[in-house]
Structures are given as C-alpha cells and as structure tokens.
Design a protein around this nucleic acid. Structure first.
Lengths: 196, 196, 196, 196
DNA sequence: TGAGTTAGAATGGCACCACCCGTC
DNA sequence: GACGGGTGGTGCCATTCTAACTCA
C-alpha cells in the first residue's frame, strides 16, 4: 500500500504523521518512508536515532519501491494544483493532516476546491489541544458540514512528539510517560488505513 | 520603521506575530501591514473583523508606504537564499519567529547559514508551551550557544490567539480570559523593537 | 398519544412547540416528530444538532407510527377548511399555538369558525412578552370570552429558543441561562397534555 | 413608485412594514396599499381605525393604480418560484422583510436561490430585539457574507406596533410612548426607498 | 401628556471549580 | 505521587433597555 501525506502548509505535523504511520505499518510488513519534503524533516528525524523502518529520498524511491510492501510518502508543502492529480494517481490513499485552527482550515478548504470528485483522500485533524478544548470536534463538524471526508478521530497534541523527534524515535519508544497514550492515536489511524 | 517578519517554514505563528506587532506599533504611530504571504493569512485575519491598522498586498505597498510611519511585512515562507540579502536591505529590523521544537530549530539554523554577518535580525521563540515546560528556555540557550541573536523572551502558546484569529481581532480585544496576559508578551516584543 | 400542532399562519412558534412538546413526551415514552411543514423547519432544527426524539416526514410516518408511543405532528400552515375535519379525526389532541397580537388572534378566530363543535382542541398562547406586559392574560381572556378553549398558561418569549434552534437542541440542553426557565413553560404544557 | 413587500413565511412583520412604509410615502404623495395577503391583514388593520392612505385588494388595484403616485403591495406569503420573476417586473423595488432568527434566515436564503441575478431587491431585518442583543447586526453580517443585498439598518421590535394594529393606526399616531422612536426606524427605511 | 420608578431580559465581565497535561 | 497552570463550565454582578405603573 502506498500512502501519501500531503500538507498544504507547514507546521501541521506532516512529518510526524508520516513517521508514526510508517512505524505502525512496519509492525506488519516491510515499510519505506519517502522524504519528499525540501526541509528533509523525516531524514532529520531518522538521523538523530533509529526508526523501525527504512527511509530514502524521492530519487531513490523508484528503485527501492519494489522491495517494500508499504510506502509512506512525505510530500513537500503547498503543492501546485496541477500536481494534485498526479499525486492522487500515484498512491492508494491520500492523507491530509491539518491543525484545528481557523487559518489552517480555511487554507485547506481553499486547496480542496481543486481536488477531483471521488478522490480517495481523508483529512486528519492533528495537534489537537487536550480534552477540555472542543477544537477537535468543532473542526471535524465544520469540515463534515463542508462536505469533506474527515477521519472521525484526531491525533492529540503531546509534548512527547517533540521529545521523540529530538531523540529520533517514535513516541512509543521515546520512554515518555504520555508516549503510549500518544501512540494509541496513531494505532487508531493505522487500523483505519489498513482496513481500506 | 520597517519590520520584516520572515518564516522559514509554515505554522510557526508568522502571521500572528505580524498582526500583533503591527497592533502594538499602531498605538504610537500610523502602521501598515503588508501581506506578502501566498496564503493571504493576514488578509484572512483582517477580513473576519477589524484590526487597528491598515493592510495591503505587496503591489500596493510601494504606493502606500509613504503615508505610514511603521510598516510590518509578512513575507512568504521559505525564501530563496538569494532573497535574503534583499530582504535585509529592505527593512530596519528582521524578525524570525520559530517554534521551540527540534525540527523547526534545525531548519532555522540551516537557513541562517546563508545569513550575512552583522545582519540586524533576531530570532523570536513563538508558540512556547506553558511554564512547567522548559522548551522555551532550552531553545533560547541552544540558539545562543550556536552564536545566533535570539530575543531573551518568548511568546507563549495560548488558545486565545486562535479565537482572536477567528474573530478577526487582536488577543487584546478578543475578550478572552487570557487575552491580556497573551498581549503582554507582544508588548514586551514591541518595546524591544521600538528601542532599537 | 397523537398530538397535532396546527398553525393558521407562520411565525407563531409552531415548530418550537412541536419540538419541545415531543422532547417532553420522550422523557416518558418513545416519541416521534412528523415534519409536515413545507419549510421542513423541524428537520432543519434537528439537522443542526441532536434532538432527544426521532423525526420523519409525512410519507414515512405511516410506516414508523406503530413503533412509537407518542407522535407529535407539525402540520403545514394555513390548512384548508376541508382538511380540518380530517386533522381532528387523525389525532387525540389538537394544539393551536398563536401569538398574543391582534392580527394573529383575528386570523385564529376566523379559522375556528370552521371548527366542528365539541372538537378536542386547545389554543396555546405562544411567544408571550415578559411579565410587565399583560398581553398574555388579555389574549386568554379575549379568547375565553369568545367561547374558545384556551390553555390557562402561556409560553413566554425567550431568546434562548432561537439559540437552541441554531444549535439544534432543546432549550433545556442549550446551556442558555434562561434555558431551564423557558423549559418550565413546556413542562407545564406537557403535564396538561399527558393528563388528558 | 411601486414597492412590493414579499414574505417567504408568515410572522415576519410583512403587513406592518407595508402599512408604515405606505404611511411614510403618503407624507409626500398620494399612496395606495394593495392588500394581496389571503389573511387580509392590511385590511384588518385599516378596518379598526384610520390610516393616512387608501387601501384596496388586488382586483381593484389595476383600476385605481393610475390615480396614485406611490403603490405599496403586500403580497401573499410563500410565493411560488415562478411568481418571482413576475413580481420583480411588476415593481420598482422589492423589499423582503425577515426576522433575525436562524430558521427564518435559512428559509430566506433558500428562496433567494431562485432570485434572478441583478434583481432590484433588499432584505430588511425586522422585529429585531433591543440593543443588548446582537442578533440584528449578526444577521446583517451573515446575509452580507452570503452575498445578498441587505439594508444596513433594522426595524426594532416594539410593543407599540401591536397596539397600533389594535387601534388601526400607525405607531406614530398610536399615542404610545415608544411610538415616535419606532417611527424613526420606518423614516430611515422610507428615506432609503425614496432615494432610489 | 410627560417624567420618574420598577421589574425583567440580554450581554459582558469576573471569580470559582473540575479536569488534565507536564514537570519534579 | 504531588504540584502548577491552561481550558472549559457554571454562577453572580453590573449595565442597558423595554414596558408598565404612578404622579404632577
């Protein structure tokens, strides 16, 4: 399965999503992360420690692809509208992470106007403030009302992710107290992705 | 005074910084925000409500500039290295907001390698988690150790900013409980900017 | 019990009455709202949030009716006189909400001339201005003097109803400050309806 | 000038608007109210007292029209979409009163989808709660954001209107304490109508 | 008829409490 | 395991304005 993580702007946890989804998939089969981001964020993550899956850049991806069962592609931010069609064709599943704030949601809806009908994509609410806040549910409701496909669950905000990035590992292996709890969010996403 | 807000990646509160710094400056003199971001984030903010200062795009900026005492420029993310020199010459002060996480700091240091010596810039730690967390101080220490110019204070993370963006006003006028406290962070920044 | 809410003109709180009476009845038994209004007001209300009872249109009503203990029918405004007899036969109780202003009362009396003798109906004064105003009592006295069957209590006017409609819930669950007080009016109506 | 008052649902002050706008126009020229409402609300109003302008039904309107400078038409509620075009052609100005609650606004927007482009119409916020409430401004903002033509002022809610209807006169002549204040709202509307 | 008084509704402000993340 | 702090919810006070009553 080829999963593409697409971000329309920076700072919405695109790389974190790619790394942890790949980590989940690698529990079941050989998985490769393709770091297509100009910032090389995923490579920077992996370079600090040891991820449970392999990583390469876009150039090497074509050659390596045939050896892996699952491929997670971390694309560059702000794709041109003409790239959208090609991105959709080149993957089995397109995941669009976003933060639940107004500016990000606006930019997301603007970009999705160029999305072809019937595309196999899903919006993923990311970096959602902890429970007293209702931003996550409100954002899901807002996007659903706009007729968009949104995952009915969210990835919560935890400091553990930043600490994991610093160590170059996943939250599950970060040794952080909230690591297991944070990991459960990505287990939920992983189950959803594998069921399709 | 012309202040340029430069972001090397998205989601680090560039627009929030531009809007609130301009709001601070407008207390003392006529201030203009130039929205150079391709997402038109500042315009989107202002369009929802009423900001205490005027706003225009880059094209109109040249004509309007002479009528304003202070100009705050919200640039596009990920400038090309060759743009850096021009940006520095075109302003009195360059502010580079960043979040205190490892990935953002890495990208920032990477970009600052292309920065000319003696440039009049300052890094601003933004969206810093609340006090039990030491991320803000650690990031400041890390950047100072790397020989970079960092403001010795930070802008804290508050939900009030997102609510203010939704209403199209500054946190000070958002009526939010933490609005005044959040505003005090930008007062600190504003004082620092005006003293130079 | 089948309760029909009949309005002779728009804007007299017919849908609000149907929704809240159904919510009261659903505390005791399974209740269904039948949205017979061409504007689909009740459906619009329920579509915004979550009502404590089910809802269907007139076509589905026949099939669903047997599964419910109580049915509240929100009819279309301005029924033809020949529909009156059928409406009366098709329910256990007919409630005619009206506002306490002269124009609405005139139209109501005009319509009730076509009402058969001995019919099991009751007029409900709705959207009554707050207490310094005597419109509610005056309207009740006026209708009683005209020999009509009027409930001896009223439903007061509150902004909470509009906010509840916006949220798609009942006033009791709207979280509004006056919500509980407004709900007490419908509790009074509900008790009266169940006692018959 | 021929002004048509069109209501998509009942209870939104259509007749009150027709009567008071006609009263305003009759200060300057001979004015006729055409009572096209099946409830004969305007006739009921006039029948109780004395209005400063004449009144007739739709049948007599054609014959009487030539003797009057201004004609205000009170149409029936819930016009069929195919009537819209004819209504627009048959008048110089179309006024659509509405209350500022969510249900009425929804129904209004639904109806305006059938409105031809470039039509000379204006929405009038009517029966607006007194000042601590922000419903009036919010409704205006909501309708403007939807791209509709709304008058930038509102007609406030006053009990004086109901008392005036009972007496069969305008609020200005009702002797009510708030009568003059209420009348000023319709003066604002009348000036706007005559300027066009 | 006009002015002052009182009751009640609606918004906005502030203080208090519960919950949970994040550090020690 | 304990503490500090942000976030949301509830309840209370102040303000403004309508609507009715009373007095001159």
């Amino acid at each position: 399965m080829i999963v593409t993580i697409l971000g329309f702007k920076g700072g919405i946890g695109k790389t974190t999503t790619a790394v942890h989804l790949a980590a989940y998939l690698s529990q079941y089969d050989k998985t490769l992360i393709v770091d297509g981001d100009p910032n090389r964020s995923a490579s920077s993550w992996a370079g600090r420690g040891k991820l449970p899956c392999d990583l390469c850049d876009e150039q090497s991806a074509i050659k390596l692809a045939k050896s892996y069962e699952h491929i997670v592609i971390d694309t560059k931010a702000r794709p041109e509208p003409e790239d959208l069609e090609a991105l959709l064709k080149g993957c089995d599943k397109l995941i669009l992470p976003t933060t639940p704030d107004a500016l990000a949601l606006d930019a997301l809806i603007l970009m999705l106007k160029a999305m072809p009908q019937g595309a196999n994509y899903n919006i993923l609410l990311n970096i959602v403030p902890p429970k007293p806040s209702k931003m996550g549910e409100e954002a899901i409701k807002f996007l659903e009302d706009a007729g968009l496909q949104v995952y009915p669950f969210v990835i919560r905000r935890f400091t553990a992710y930043q600490r994991a990035a610093l160590k170059g590992v996943t939250v599950y292996e970060s040794g952080d107290r909230m690591g297991k709890i944070a990991w459960s969010d990505y287990q939920r996403l992983g189950r959803e992705v594998l069921n399709v």
